[in-house]
Simulated assay, not measured.
Amino acid sequence: MSLSLSGSQWRRVVLVLACLHVLVIAASNYLVQLPFTLFGWHTTWGAFSFPFIFLVSDLTVRLLGGATARRVVAAAMAPALVVSYLLSVLYVDGRFAGLDALAEFDTLVARIALASFCAYLFGQLLDIGVFQRLRRLRQWWVAPTASTLFGNALDTLLFFSIAFAGSSNGFMAEHWLEIACVDYAFKLLISLGLFLPLYGALLALLSRYLLTATASAPARGQRVPDC
């Protein structure tokens, strides 16, 4: 598939995708504060939301190329860091702490925000790199499967180790490795069991939409690589 997008179309796509990344990050930073036990294992609700970013990134690489996916990550980095800190300050253990909480610098919250930033940046770059190398294989599912395995592993390890290892949150400091492993297992279960079929369906749908949207446009701007 070969698509042509004008400069304004390209910027609009990057902006929309970056906003979607920040939205998922914000939701995940809130949900990771809500641990629960499933079948005797500790995990958090963030494990069910964050895989959406990898779904979006893989579709971006497939349809628009690795360079565009990296532009999306670059555009989302600073807003993601700010949103991570603000949300973690305003909501503690899933409860609204009030605007007064913004007046004091919270070290633990800053660690969580930094952890989220590092995990997002390096996890996404690894995911994009792996997907880019495998995207031309005839089996469409190999690239998203491999990128999900590696990207989620790095993301999970970075986030929980930076945020909670030796932190003032006693429960998370004690159980972060267990929670990280269970979190990773749930991410894989959700990503490969639910998102992989969804990826295939969205790929077909978006391919038809983008081809229709650009078929009548003159060949100007940047050309999207073949899928």
Rank of each mutant, 00 (worst) to 15 (best):
residue 40 G to C: 08
residue 58 D to A: 06
residue 209 Y to M: 04
residue 16 V to L: 13
residue 133 R to S: 11
residue 51 P to D: 02
residue 156 T to H: 07
residue 62 R to Y: 05
residue 115 A to C: 05
residue 130 V to H: 00
residue 16 V to P: 03
residue 52 F to T: 00
residue 185 A to G: 08
residue 35 P to Q: 04
residue 41 W to A: 11
residue 32 V to Q: 02
residue 135 R to E: 13
residue 9 Q to F: 01
residue 122 F to E: 01
residue 125 L to H: 12
residue 112 I to D: 00
residue 41 W to E: 11
residue 101 A to D: 06
residue 101 A to S: 15
residue 208 R to K: 12
residue 150 F to C: 15
residue 66 G to P: 06
residue 32 V to T: 04
residue 100 D to P: 00
residue 33 Q to K: 01
residue 127 D to N: 13
residue 129 G to V: 02
residue 164 F to H: 03
residue 15 L to N: 11
residue 24 V to M: 09
residue 52 F to Y: 05
residue 129 G to D: 02
residue 186 F to M: 15
residue 128 I to K: 01
residue 153 A to R: 00
residue 77 M to V: 10
residue 192 L to M: 09
residue 175 H to G: 06
residue 13 V to K: 09
residue 2 S to T: 13
residue 113 A to F: 00
residue 42 H to D: 10
residue 92 V to C: 09
residue 188 L to P: 03
residue 131 F to W: 05
residue 155 D to K: 00
residue 83 V to L: 11
residue 16 V to G: 06
residue 187 K to S: 05
residue 208 R to I: 08
residue 66 G to W: 14
residue 98 G to S: 15
residue 161 S to T: 11
residue 93 D to A: 15
residue 27 A to T: 07
residue 4 S to R: 11
residue 136 R to S: 13
residue 44 T to P: 00
residue 99 L to V: 15
residue 57 S to M: 03
residue 217 A to L: 12
residue 148 T to A: 13
residue 86 L to F: 14
residue 118 C to Q: 07
residue 8 S to H: 10
residue 24 V to R: 06
residue 131 F to Y: 15
residue 147 S to C: 04
residue 206 L to N: 03
residue 173 A to M: 10
residue 70 R to V: 03
residue 3 L to F: 09
residue 117 F to C: 05
residue 135 R to K: 14
residue 95 R to K: 10
residue 76 A to C: 09
residue 30 Y to C: 03
residue 88 S to H: 10
residue 169 N to W: 11
residue 149 L to D: 12
residue 30 Y to S: 05
residue 51 P to V: 04
residue 141 W to P: 08
residue 225 P to V: 10
residue 2 S to F: 08
residue 138 R to F: 06
residue 155 D to H: 04
residue 185 A to T: 08
residue 41 W to H: 09
residue 16 V to R: 04
residue 61 V to P: 01
residue 111 R to S: 12
residue 203 L to E: 07
residue 76 A to E: 02
residue 204 A to K: 14
residue 107 T to R: 06
residue 62 R to I: 00
residue 82 V to R: 12
residue 76 A to L: 05
residue 91 Y to Q: 06
residue 109 V to N: 03
residue 120 Y to R: 09
residue 185 A to H: 03
residue 66 G to Y: 12
residue 9 Q to D: 11
residue 99 L to A: 14
residue 70 R to H: 07
residue 204 A to D: 10
residue 211 L to Q: 11
residue 182 V to D: 00
residue 66 G to I: 10
residue 52 F to I: 07
residue 48 F to L: 15
residue 189 L to A: 12
